[in-house]
Amino acid sequence: MFKIIKRQEMAEGTVILNEIEAPLIARKALPGQFVIIKATETGERIPLTMADTDPENGTITIIYMVVGKSTAIFRDLKEGDSYMDVIGPLGAATHLEKVGKVVCVGGGTGVAVLHPIARGLKEIGNDVTSIIGSRNKDLLILENKMKIASTKLHICTDDGSYGHHGFVTEVLKDILEKEDIKMAVAIGPVPMMKAACAVTKEYNVKTLVSLNPIMIDGTGMCGGCRVSVGGETKFACVDGPEFDGHKVNFDELILRLRAYDIEEKKSYDHYCNLQKA
């Protein structure tokens, strides 16, 4: 059992942070790696990136958006409750390299995944400009942490309630236009990553993305997480989750993420009804 020692709500309760006791994972995890979490006996195995780790206290931090049944079950766990299974660290770690000027783009809960990478890039001496976005001011997460992890931070909201009024891609284009950016990292909803890659491609700036296909084992055993990268099939759980964004077939990923649309809705409604009853 893996105890939740801290729980915090973010973005008006749509995003939850859990700090979990998992000493063996905490001592090994590197930026970019994820865990697979199962809350109950009947639960699903859900992949979540580690937003932070504390090897000394033996804890890891996850930040997730409540989107369906499993994340709703996670949301309903309180401090002191436990997850049944936490498996990791999984996936390849981010290849952190000193290249000079880097731009990091994050959208939605993608910011949680982006944060340790931005921090890592800055720690090894890169000049890190970050752009984070959300639909409105209240949904923005990790602003302060991103400020510390970056040399310069830009904020965008779709409705203009905070920062730049518009999409992260607009600010991204502006920065690429003006500065000598050597590398980009874009993490967020798939359409956002796709759009960001289209922009960086114009400027020929290598861009790292973190993909989130549906997973089960996370060890390369099932092939359910396959994505097309440069025309080749890759398993995101072992070959990734990070890939060269200019080579990723995002359209295929979008379709594959909808594989269980109907079942997920059924499952979520089933849970909500049970909760009401």
Binding site: S70, I216, D217, M221, G223, Y260, S267
Partner: peptide, 21 residues
């Protein structure tokens, strides 16, 4: 592997009592 793991280990045949479809 995926099909059988979903069905056996994750008990998708008991969906929605079990969460994995």
């Amino acid at each position: 592997n995926e099909y059988l793991t979903r069905s056996n280990l994750m008990k998708a045949y008991l969906f929605p009592e079990y969460d994995t479809p």
